[in-house]
């Protein structure tokens, strides 16, 4: 019994809160609309939706843990998606072409991330400014490649990445689980993971502790770029076309998820599991609103409201803790 109490105490309050919210939504929606909400089809459609922005949210989480922010994720996603599409079309949509497209997309994501990391870590330009410019820059390159309209005519089999299922589990969910596992391993068991947390909580102290801040920053933004490109590939596969202005609402959504998952906006704190749960909770809310036929505009307002509400509560709780 004591052991259970200890476990509850040990568990992050934030994660516990998210779990409770998710379960509440499932129960309430299960009572209101049991046939639509609790159907296999609904869960499968949710499964093909959330990995897109969910993977982007992890990029945002890493950047925020380092004490920065990555507003260019959507730009990176679209640019690598476009280049992926161009590569595939150039190679006639064969299986080899698809593989080449994915590899090229990830390299593009790495390059974009490296550019961000260099400007932030070496030239010491504030992350917010760099990534805001980055968004413009990468979107701009995307527009130059596509000349405006979307690139279409992608191979049918490429759409299977988001539409296909493996033993009733949508493939995006499998990709998402792999990403979560890899990130969890990186944060838990590598030197880089520990260094990132140190640097995020106090960059001066980490510098004097012998941590190469530039290297950690570069790694962080490169990882973030890779996650961005994976998100981009999923977006391209989802729409079966590539364009420079897909998913523009994802910037706010990823920020919301990262904060909801317990990532501290000033750096140093963040949990992979928290963010993963936040993504699932948010997708449940979104799906519930869809089934209740709430307008998409109210959803936009709701995201903003939830973001503000969550930060205000955590901030108030924290200030209470410090005054005690």
């Amino acid at each position: 019994m004591d052991k259970v109490k200890g476990l509850v105490k040990e568990a992050d309050k934030n994660i516990l809160g998210l779990l409770i919210i998710s379960i509440c939504i499932i129960i309430v929606m299960g009572i209101i609309a049991p046939n639509t909400f609790l159907s296999v089809a609904n869960f499968q459609s949710m499964g093909s939706q959330f990995p897109e922005f969910g993977i982007l949210a992890f990029g945002m989480m890493l950047a925020m843990m380092s004490g920065g922010i990555d507003l260019s994720l959507v730009g990176i996603a679209n640019l690598s998606g476009i280049i992926c599409a161009v590569t595939m079309l150039a190679m006639d949509g064969s299986v080899v072409g698809m593989a080449a497209g994915i590899v090229v997309a990830i390299i593009v994501g790495m390059l974009c991330g490296a550019t961000n990391g260099f400007l932030i870590g070496y030239l010491k330009i504030p992350p917010m400014l760099v990534t805001l410019c980055g968004l413009q820059l990468y979107t701009g390159i995307g527009v130059i490649i596509t000349k405006g309209p979307a690139i279409t005519g992608l191979p049918e089999s490429f759409a299977l990445i988001t539409n296909g299922t493996l033993a009733f589990i949508p493939i995006p969910v499998i990709i998402f689980i792999i990403v979560v596992a890899v990130l969890w391993f990186i944060m838990k068991s590598t030197t880089y993971g520990k260094e990132l947390v140190f640097m995020g909580s106090n960059s001066t102290a980490s510098k004097y502790a012998g941590i190469d801040n530039l290297k950690v920053t570069m790694t962080t933004y490169i990882l973030s770029g890779i996650l961005g490109s994976i998100g981009g590939i999923l977006i391209v596969s989802h729409y079966n076309s590539a364009k420079s202005d897909y998913g523009t609402s994802y910037t706010l959504l990823t920020l919301l998820i990262a904060v909801l998952g317990g990532t501290h906006p000033e750096g140093g704190k963040g949990k992979v599991m928290g963010v993963a749960l936040a993504i699932i909770a948010l997708q449940l809310v979104s799906s519930a609103l869809n089934i209740l036929k709430v307008s998409a505009f109210i959803k936009t307002a709701a995201w903003g409201f939830i973001l503000i509400a969550v930060i205000v509560t955590t901030q108030l709780i924290e200030s209470k803790k410090t005054t005690r």
Binding site: I69, M128, L252, L255, L256, V259, P265, E266, S295, F297, I298, K299, T300, A301, A302, W303, G304, F305, L307, I308, I311, V312, Q315, L316, S319
Partner: peptide, 23 residues
Amino acid sequence: KIKIPPLIATLGVSSLLNGITLA
């Protein structure tokens, strides 16, 4: 008053206001 980082606060307000306007 609440001391939220300005970027996040105003981004949230932006989404809130835009949603309200449209809805």
